[in-house]
Amino acid sequence: MNLMRKLRGATSSASPETAEASSSSSHVQLGLMHLKKLFAEYTHPPQPLTDAEKDDKLYNMLPLFCKVFGTSPSSEMNEKFWDILSFCQQVSKLMVSEIRKRASNQSTEAASCAIAKFLEIENSEESSNGWMLLSTLNLLAAGDQSLIQVMTTASIPSTLVKCLYLFFDLPEIPESEADVQDGNSDFTPRERRILLQKIFVQVPAVQRYQ
């Protein structure tokens, strides 16, 4: 297929690679416009929202944010998304709230299980709220110092480090269940756990404590 693209490129004024890049850029621009619109509606709703409704709206934005900025230089977050600091603050507050809710009044083992279940990928990326939160924070943590400061103020570093310590009490997945694939998911329990470990240790706040 690559050879065919090269051959076509030799006889065409615009190569397929160029066309694909242009199409991808167009999709990113449309995604960014939609993201800005959704966040504006989130921060200035036409009618008051309950906390649950606000959380749902924010969760719905996370896959779009990751698609728009997942392959872009981190500097573009501040340049192209002017509300990035406010967005970062809301995402950080949501993560801290979700973790505290699962760790409150629990044994360390029960807390570690609840947090891991929340953060692990489920049927797909976009349907996994905790996974998308962690993925979004991973992108934000690669941004400039202003984003890091927002995350620090919201207690993201200390919260993630607490998760890391709790995970020391995370029980091993029974071998009889580790490689059993649920009919509704593309991942086995073992694969979900490995993926969580990989993305979790990429977050700068966690890397400093390894």
Rank of each mutant, 00 (worst) to 15 (best):
M1A: 12
K6A: 14
G9V: 06
G9H: 07
A10Q: 11
S13M: 15
S13A: 15
A14V: 14
S15V: 12
P16K: 10
T18E: 14
S22R: 03
S22G: 01
S24I: 06
S25Y: 05
S26D: 07
S26C: 06
Q29I: 09
G31H: 08
M33E: 13
K36A: 09
K37S: 14
L38W: 08
L38F: 05
L38Y: 09
F39T: 05
E41V: 03
Y42R: 01
T43C: 15
P46G: 10
P46Q: 13
P48E: 04
L49A: 00
A52C: 04
E53T: 11
D56F: 02
K57L: 08
N60W: 01
F65W: 03
K67E: 12
V68T: 03
T71K: 12
S72M: 11
S72V: 06
P73M: 01
E76F: 09
M77F: 09
E79G: 13
K80A: 05
F81H: 11
F81R: 11
D83P: 05
V91W: 04
S92L: 08
S92N: 07
M95R: 00
V96D: 00
E98A: 03
E98S: 06
R102F: 00
N105M: 12
E109F: 02
A116K: 06
A116F: 01
K117G: 08
K117T: 07
L119I: 01
E120W: 00
E120D: 05
E122F: 09
N123L: 03
E125W: 06
W131H: 11
L133T: 05
N138G: 15
L140V: 01
L140K: 06
A141K: 12
G143I: 06
I148W: 15
Q149S: 13
Q149G: 01
Q149H: 14
M151S: 03
T153F: 14
A154P: 00
S155L: 06
S155Y: 01
I156Y: 04
T159F: 00
E175G: 10
D179L: 06
Q181H: 07
S185A: 03
R190S: 15
E191Y: 10
A205W: 15
A205Q: 13
Q210R: 10
